[in-house]
């Protein structure tokens, strides 16, 4: 099973109901966001004057680059398929791809707040909320869950439920009879990264002109994984070190240097 979402640009009017409903449902604090609507154009294209929208959210990718980068200590976790009751146990860090529904989820309790996953995401679909910082972290990462807690209760994701134009369709992409699969057959496409394949599962459907504009403006590149990995690695080293340093009231020279590098990384972003 692989949950996915279709956004039908022929229907979308760019009204932002989806983004505000998400805020209300999950108490997402301003200025952060789990989903967004960007207005594109009007601009002259090869197909004529065009304007459309980029309603974005986590793509719950087939090969999510964010998941691999999490430096939190792995733990064993048992997943359960809601339908068949089957279980599967695997080692996961603080973020993972669910083996049954295909969604990408986060355990805030174990999140270090380092932001490596957020940097790794080509879509900018994750944010670190510093207000949730605790003794073990500088904040906690947050993102769209495809409204997993709602979906498990048989509800639609909040953005889908409120959409005034029925432009958002949620369902199982691995079921060929689902509406989302029918859209894929009609040509719905994800914003796949340039020169790569990570398999985004939030997909867009629209006319040639609008799709052309969206894909020209928002086809992402894979993040520079070298710097992401460095960041994650340092976070995993520094966090306990920093805590310890704080506890004894001294920040060692090496620690200070690491912190400096980290903050430089931040500035470069």
């Amino acid at each position: 099973m692989q949950y996915g979402m279709i956004i039908d640009l022929e229907r979308c009017v760019g009204c932002h109901a989806c983004t505000i409903a998400c805020r209300a449902e999950w108490e997402v604090p301003v200025p952060y966001q789990r989903n967004w609507v960007k207005r594109l154009g009007p601009t002259m294209t090869d197909d004529g004057m065009a304007a459309t929208y980029y309603p974005g959210l986590c793509n719950h990718c087939d090969k999510p680059p964010c998941v691999d980068e999490c430096p939190a200590d792995p733990v064993e976790m048992t997943f359960k398929d809601a339908k068949s009751g089957k279980t599967k146990t695997m080692e996961v860090a603080a973020t993972w791809k669910d083996p049954f529904d295909g969604t990408v989820q986060v355990d805030k309790g174990r999140c270090l707040g380092c932001g490596a996953c957020a940097d790794a995401c080509p879509y900018g679909a994750r944010y670190v909320d510093p207000a949730l910082a605790d003794d073990d972290s500088e904040g906690k990462v947050d993102k769209c869950t495809y409204c997993k807690p709602r979906v498990e209760q048989g509800l639609q994701p909040a953005c889908v439920q409120t959409c005034i134009a029925d432009a958002r369709i949620f369902g199982d992409l691995s079921d060929p009879n689902s509406e989302v699969s029918q859209y894929v057959r009609k040509g719905a496409k994800g914003l796949e990264v340039k020169d790569g394949h990570i398999g985004p599962n939030s997909r867009y459907f629209g006319n040639k002109k609008d799709m052309g504009l969206l894909f020209a403006d928002y086809t992402p590149e894979l993040a520079d994984m070298g710097s992401v990995k460095r960041r994650a690695m340092m976070a995993s080293m520094v966090k306990p070190a920093m805590r310890k340093a704080k506890d004894i009231g001294i920040l060692g020279v090496a620690g200070a240097m690491l912190v400096k590098t980290l903050s430089e990384d931040n500035e470069k972003k």
């Binding site: 009204c15 109901a17 983004t19 409903a21 209300a24 449902e25 108490e27 409120t162 005034i164």
Partner: peptide
């Protein structure tokens, strides 16, 4: 905590716009 369209509505259904949600 949140406002939603009244599921019984034959007018807006479960939909409300950005402003309604806010």
């Amino acid at each position: 905590m949140k406002l939603e369209g009244n599921p019984k509505s034959i007018d807006n259904g479960t939909s409300i716009c950005a402003r309604g949600n806010a």
